[in-house]
Design a protein around this nucleic acid. Structure first.
Lengths: 341, 341
DNA sequence: CTGTTAGCGCGTTCAT
DNA sequence: ATGAACGCGCTAACAG
C-alpha cells in the first residue's frame, strides 16, 4: 500500500498545472515566481485554481538547480546542546524566515571529522551562505567555500580566515564582571573556563582577565579549566588564603554548570562564602542557591546580525570585513550580594 | 571582488571533471555513485585525480532531482528551546548520519502558521520522510504529505492521523512517580502541567494521574497548569490542609522550571517542607536545593527509534502502524528524601 | 567496460 | 501578454 520505497514518488509537477489550466509551463513559472504582474487576470485566475485543485508545490530542488539560488543558508554548530548555540540559532532562523530563507543546521558534536563531512554536505546542497560556530579546522575547505559564498563567524574566530564576524565584546564583558565583583567587595577571583581547544572567545576572555587583573591592584586573579580535576582545584582555591573574599567568574554557561556541580560536591553554602558571576544567562541561574549573577549575551541579536551580514554580502556588498561586538548585560542576583553582609 | 550576488556561482561540474579526465560524464557519474566497480582501474584513477585537482563536489540538488531520492529527512519541532526536543533531535540526527541521511529541522515556535509554512517548505525540498513533534494542526497538509512519504510522530499524537509513533510510556511513568512519592511518605500530590493546548502527552499524563490517584486511597491528587497564576495556585495548595505531607509532580521540564521559580517566590525552603519529582532530567536538576528527583526520558533512543521507523518504511515495510513506548528511568535526588526525617 | 542520449522539474531567453 | 525551446547538473537507459 505505502510504497515509499519507489524511487520516483509521483508528485504533481508544473507541467500538470499547465495542462490543467490550459496554459504553458512558462506562464505557471511566472505565476510562481516574481513575474506575476506580467500575467493577465484571466490566466492568473486559472493557474491559481489549478494549483489549488492539484495541490501543486514548486520543487525547490529544480528551482535551485536552474537559478543557482536555493534560498538556503547553512549553519555549522559545534555543540547543539549548548544553550548559547541554540539561542543564537533561533535568532538566525527567525531572521532567515523573515527574509524568505531557510536554515540548514549541522551539528558537529565538537568532532573535526563531522565538521568536514558537514561542510561537504552543505556545499553539495548549494547553500548560498554559511554561518560558522565551530573551531573551523579544515582551513582549505573553509577557504574554498568562502570563495564560493559569503561566510560569517559567530563567537569564534578562525585563524587565517578573513571574514565577517559577530560575537561578544569580551574585554568589555570581563571588565563588567571584574568591576562588579570589586565593587561588591570580592578580592580574590578565580576564572573558570572550558579547556582551551582553540576556541577564540575563551582565549580572549582569559587574556582580558589576566590583563585587567594587572590593572586592578586590589584584586588577585587566577584561572582554571573545567574537567575531571575541577573539584579538587576549586577546593585548593577555597582553602588557600588570599587577599580577601573569594569569587568565581565562570566564562560561559557550561563552566557555570560544572562549577556549581563542583561547589555542591564540596558542600559549599551557595553563595554565602563565595561569590559567583557567570557569562551567559541560562534559565536556571535564578534557581540555584540565592541565584547566579549573570552577564547575558544578546543571543537573538547576535543571530540576527549574523544573517544580516550574510544578506548584505549576498546583495553584493564588497566592503571590508566587519567585526560586530555586542555588549553583555549585567543581571545581578544573590551570588554577588557581596561581603558587607 | 566577492561577487556572491551573481545568480550562478560558477562551480566545478561533472562535465568539467569528465573533460579534465578525458572520459564521459557517465563514467564520472559511475565513479561518484555506487557503480565504481564497473570502471577500469585506469579510468578510475584518472577520474579520482581530476576530482581532486578540481575540487569537485557532486551537486545533491541535481542528484535528487534526477533520482527522486534526496537523502533528506525533515523534522518539525514545536519548540526548539525545549531541552527535550533538542535531545531527541540530537538522537535523530545521529541516526540519520549513520545511515547517510541528513536532517532538516524546522522550528515552529508553537505557531500554527509557521507549522504550515514549514510543512510546505519541507515538501518542496523533496524530503523522503518526516518526523513530527508539533501539534499537527493542518490535518490536510499532513495527510497529503503522509501519502507521499512515511511519517512518524514523536511524543505527541495527532488526531485522525494514522502513523507510527514513538514516545514515552506515560501511564507507567506516572505510576513510577506516584509509587515513589507514596513510598517516601508523601500523601498530598499536586500535578503541575503546561496548559492543555492539545498536546497528547500532557493529556495522557494528567489522565493517568487522575486514574491512578483513584487506585491509591492513601493519596490525594489535584492538578494545576503553569501560567501567570501558578504562584498563587501553589500558595493555595501549600496552605490548604491535606491528608499529609505534600509533594509536586511536574509533568515535564518546563513545568519543573516554572514551579521551582514559583516556589522560590514563595520562599519555600527547597525541599524541606515539600517534595518534588519531575519528568525529564535536565542538567540543572541536581543543582537546585537538595537536587530534584527526576524521571528521565531516554531521548537519544527515542530519536534513534523515530528515524529507524522511517527507514523501515522507506525500505518498503507496509506493516501495521506501530507505537513505541519507552520507559522513564527514576533518578532519586534530595527533593524526595521523604518526610521520615 | 565505456560513451551517447534522454530526461528529472524548472526558469529563461527568444519569438510571437 | 503568452508560448516554444533550451539547459541547469546529474542519472539511467541503451548501445557499442
Amino acid at each position: 500500500m505505502n510504497d515509499f520505497s519507489a524511487a520516483q514518488r509521483s508528485r504533481v509537477t508544473m507541467l500538470d498545472v499547465a495542462e490543467h489550466a490550459k496554459v504553458s509551463k512558462a506562464s505557471v513559472s511566472r505565476f510562481i515566481g516574481d513575474d506575476r504582474a506580467l500575467l493577465s487576470d484571466a490566466i492568473a485566475q486559472r493557474i491559481e485554481q489549478a494549483i489549488a485543485e492539484l495541490g501543486y508545490r514548486p520543487n525547490q530542488m529544480a528551482r535551485g538547480l536552474k537559478r543557482g539560488r536555493t534560498r538556503l543558508i547553512g549553519m555549522l554548530v559545534a555543540d547543539i546542546r549548548n544553550p548559547y548555540s541554540i539561542a543564537v540559532m533561533h535568532g538566525v532562523e527567525t531572521a532567515c524566515r523573515q527574509h524568505g530563507y531557510s536554515l540548514v543546521v549541522c551539528n558537529t558534536d565538537r568532532d573535526d571529522e563531522q565538521e568536514r563531512q558537514h561542510l561537504a554536505l552543505l556545499r553539495s546542497y548549494n547553500i548560498e551562505g554559511l554561518i560558522v560556530n565551530t573551531l573551523g579546522h579544515h582551513r582549505d575547505e573553509l577557504h574554498e567555500l568562502h570563495r564560493e559564498m559569503p561566510l560569517v563567524l559567530v563567537d569564534r574566530k578562525v585563524e587565517h580566515l578573513e571574514s565577517d564576524m559577530v560575537g561578544l565584546n569580551n574585554p568589555q564583558a570581563v571588565e563588567m564582571a571584574l568591576a562588579h565583583l570589586e565593587e561588591r567587595g570580592y578580592r580574590d577571583v578565580l576564572l573558570v573556563t572550558e579547556p582551551f581547544d582553540g576556541t577564540s572567545s575563551r582565549i580572549e576572555r582569559v587574556n582580558s582577565f589576566k590583563a585587567q587583573i594587572e590593572q586592578r591592584p586590589a584584586l588577585r586573579g587566577t584561572s582554571i579549566e573545567t574537567g575531571s580535576e575541577l573539584t579538587a582545584r576549586l577546593k585548593t582555591f577555597l582553602e588557600t588564603p588570599g587577599p580577601g573574599p573569594k569569587a568565581l567568574f565562570c566564562a560561559n554557561g557550561i563552566a557555570a554548570l560544572a562549577s556549581t556541580h563542583a561547589l555542591r560536591e564540596l558542600n559549599i553554602n551557595l553563595f554565602d562564602d563565595l561569590g559567583l558571576i557567570a557569562l551567559d544567562d541560562l534559565d536556571w541561574y535564578p534557581l540555584v542557591g540565592s541565584g547566579i549573577t549573570a552577564l547575558a549575551q544578546p543571543t537573538t541579536e547576535i543571530g540576527a546580525s549574523a544573517f544580516e551580514c550574510l544578506l548584505k554580502r549576498l546583495r553584493g556588498d564588497d566592503g571590508a570585513m566587519r567585526t560586530l561586538d555586542f555588549s553583555a548585560r549585567l543581571i545581578v542576583r544573590g551570588s554577588t550580594l557581596g561581603v558587607s553582609r
